[in-house]
Amino acid sequence: MNLLEVKNLNTSFHIGVGVVQAVRGISFDVAEGESVGIVGESGSGKSVTMLSVMGLLPEYADISADSIRFDGREITKLSKKAARAMHGSEIGMIFQDPMTSLNPLFTVESQLTEPLRIHRHMNKAQARQRALELLRQVEIPNPEARLKQYPHELSGGLRQRVMIAIALACEPKMIIADEPTTALDVTIQAQILDLLQHLKQKTKASIIMITHDLGVIASMCTRIFVMYGGVICEQGSAREIFYDAKHPYTWGLLNSIPKVTGKTGEKLIPIKGTPPDMLKPPAGCPFSPRCRYCMPVCRTYMPPLTALSDTHIVACHLTHPKAPKITKGV
């Protein structure tokens, strides 16, 4: 069953010089217990998508969607208060930088017990008990002492563990992790990814992982959405994306990172040009100005979604039966 269903989500920001169209009509769903990855570069709309679903964007953001259903309920129709209660207790969020997302003025205890007291109406002693349990669950040694500490007394890895504990506090059905390991060193990143895997098995929550790191996605996620210029240009199972990608942008992404195996000295194939300016996105396919297979139609019409299998959906004019056949893209 689908835990989250989003239909035709559009998010734009009105800023002084115009309207930034960050997310442009995307639809997707996430099943119960599934781990989904959203990849894309900065400005591709991957974070804004999830922040829109979470209702965490500022007032001046203009969000519209045909439907956003979470666990059978229509979020767009809920009152502000009801939506807030649902977001707070049923969806946990882990942010990129634990230094800026934890409040430096409050102890670990007060930040960890806050959601419990608000959403679970626990008293102080109960909340404290649960907080200790959570710290143990995220494998923080010596949790009693840690509760009394402030964020600056913790290392980056420990702070991220505290963030995860807060996200787990109300036993959410879904966890959104927005670049959870980008600010961490690679050995600490391995610890955190390990912990997330482990917690996922234990709690059975769905995980949506937002990242630009294809390596993190490959080890964590079973299904992948590739975003570019505010749209999902390709989605599919991890195997379909890594071994059988059909969108030139996905090819480009995979070719611009060094191969794991294979000898050095092989040239990287970069994607030419720079990502689009979302103040005035290209009329047709957002990738068309950088695409080496661009056809005239790509510049004027947004490509339709083509389903190649139950999971594999591509938005590219090359999938049209009359388009030139490109077997192995570079």
């Binding site: 420990l158 060193d185 690679v186 050995t187 391995a190 610890q191 490959a218 890594f242 794991v260 195996t261």
Partner: peptide
């Protein structure tokens, strides 16, 4: 430990790798 911690952008390879997870911080 450092090399094994690098996430590999290839699901089949990633499943095979034995990660050495270091305890503690630097």
């Amino acid at each position: 430990a450092l090399m094994s911690a690098v996430p590999i952008a290839d699901p089949d390879q990633a499943a095979k790798i034995q990660r050495i997870v270091l305890q503690g911080d630097v």
